[in-house]
Write a protein that binds this DNA or RNA. Structure first.
Length: 479
DNA sequence: ATGTTC
């Protein structure tokens, strides 16, 4: 049934007026190309957005960013806020399986030319230092159960305290690299078991580690505040909470199906399983989710440490590379934030926090331009750095897009890539690939993704993000 | 995303 009624509000903004069991309107951002894609999928992801608007205690519109696509329960690219004092709910499907999956951008003082003679050495060193692939694990560092729980409680700072990284790194992570509330005792033994050996690993799927260069600057003032300049080498890390977060999500999805029934929450889709924020179940999930989120921050911190070692393996001294964290931000979590004097729980699933100038938790250096918003594209084209805007604060609960979004299923991509040699094609374009599995490279081929430039143009045009710079890949490490 | 069907 292709019957999602929507109307155009302005060039890039569309509204699905409240109807049926919806408590509020839904709003999404798109251009003609994205609209055509939504139609081609029978509006499956917009229907998911409509479903989100039926959950109790939702505040303001249910929102979707222009990289919206179908997900578990909630659409990926979805943003939804709930009022804890008005029966508002929390839903594991509104956060996603990869809890606190996110992106961290490192800057260097190296130019593309500095890198060129050592590019192969660096690619090999990164692949050696950062385990990638399904079930990837580290053998060099063992975390005792006690130390692992400290990581879940303290996040990235627990890693810095052990010598993995620098104190300055922590100032450049969303929420200081630690979500409050984290309680490892509400994480199952099975989740802890899965997570232990995986701290400091990349994983598989769309996760990656990329060495890039700044190709173009659109906003010189913001670029200067961020310390970005044309020709500069950067490193982008995309990974999350690995098997630990996945297990936490699975544990609570099962429990929340029963909880929803107990609290009389009508679910138009079982995958929306939810519990009141203030219920024991809701509280348990929020505390466990925060612990998994801290694991993800710590994961990106340990990878950062190993990226620094890899640059040194390749012959760059610390004073030459000067690897610094520009920013680390997540796109799969639920956080308490305040809008128009109201404290709400904002679910972001495949959506990025994009706080504008003057907002809380934005590092002092970025306070006048807004927080950096990192938007990875695909491994052949480019990624973008945006800045948070006042428009995002008033219209999208301080949120923006998180990536390009697929336009081809994994299966279809694999089939299309079968008769090609993606790794050789990318190398011919100057992009070195080191991957644990050819199948993953095939699934992740550039054509499998929408052009992220189109997504970013919608965000920029709608005023919920501002283009700052574009990054082009030089080395790609994949699972 | 995921010890990719504990």
């Amino acid at each position: 049934m292709d019957n999602v009624p929507f109307e155009r509000l302005d060039r890039y903004t569309y509204r699905i007026p409240r109807h049926g069991k919806m408590w509020v309107d839904a709003v999404f951002y798109a251009n003609d190309e994205i609209l055509a894609q939504l139609e081609a999928e029978g509006y499956a992801s917009l229907k998911q957005l409509v479903n989100v608007a039926t959950l109790p205690g939702i505040v303001g519109p249910a929102l979707a960013m222009p990289d919206i696509h179908w997900g578990y329960g909630f659409p990926i690219g979805g943003v939804a806020a709930f009022d804890p004092t008005a029966g508002g709910v929390v839903s594991p499907g509104g956060v996603g399986f990869d809890i606190n999956c996110g992106v961290r951008l490192l800057t260097t003082r190296l130019t593309r030319e500095d890198l060129e003679p050592r590019k192969t050495r660096l690619a090999d060193a990164l692949y050696r230092r950062v385990p990638a692939g399904v079930g990837s694990a580290r053998r060099d560092v063992r975390w005792s159960p006690k130390d692992l729980k400290t990581v879940l409680r303290e996040g990235a700072r627990a890693l810095v305290a052990q010598g993995f990284g620098e104190a300055a790194d922590l100032e450049r992570i969303e929420s200081g690299g630690r979500l409050p509330l984290a309680d490892p005792d509400r994480v199952s033994a099975r989740a802890l078991e899965r997570g232990g050996p995986q701290l400091g690993t990349l994983g598989s799927g769309n996760h990656f580690l990329e060495v890039q260069y700044v190709d173009e600057v659109y906003d010189p003032e913001a670029a200067e505040a961020y310390g970005l300049w044309v020709g500069q080498v950067t490193v982008l890390i995309h990974t999350g909470s690995r098997g630990l977060g996945h297990q936490v999500c699975q544990d609570y999805v099962e429990r929340f199906l029963q909880a929803a029934r107990r609290y009389g929450i009508e679910l138009v889709d079982r995958q929306l399983a939810a519990a009141p924020i203030e219920s024991p179940e809701g509280q348990d999930y929020l505390h466990a989710m925060a612990a998994a989120a801290n694991f993800a921050f710590a994961n990106r911190q340990l990878i950062t440490h190993n990226v620094r070692l890899a640059f040194e393996d390749a012959g760059f001294l610390p004073r030459d590379h000067q690897l610094r964290v520009l920013y680390d931000l997540a796109h799969n979590n639920a956080k308490f934030e305040e809008y128009a004097g109201r404290r709400v729980l904002v679910h972001r699933k495949g959506a990025t926090r994009a706080f504008g100038p003057g907002a809380p938790d934005v590092p002092p250096a970025f306070r006048t331009v807004g927080q950096p918003v990192l938007v990875p594209g695909d491994m052949g084209r480019y990624s973008f750095v945006l800045a948070g805007t006042p428009g995002a604060m008033t219209r999208t609960f301080g949120s923006s897009c998180h990536g390009a979004g697929r336009q081809m299923s994994r299966h279809k991509a694999k089939k299309a890539a079968r008769k090609r040699n993606l790794i050789a094609e990318l190398e011919a374009q100057g992009i070195l690939v080191r991957a644990a599995s050819r199948a993953t490279v095939d699934e992740e081929m550039p054509e499998a993704y929408k052009d992220v430039a189109s997504v970013v143009d919608v965000v920029h045009g709608a005023g919920i993000g501002k283009k700052v710079a574009r990054l082009r890949p030089l080395i790609v490490v994949k699972g």
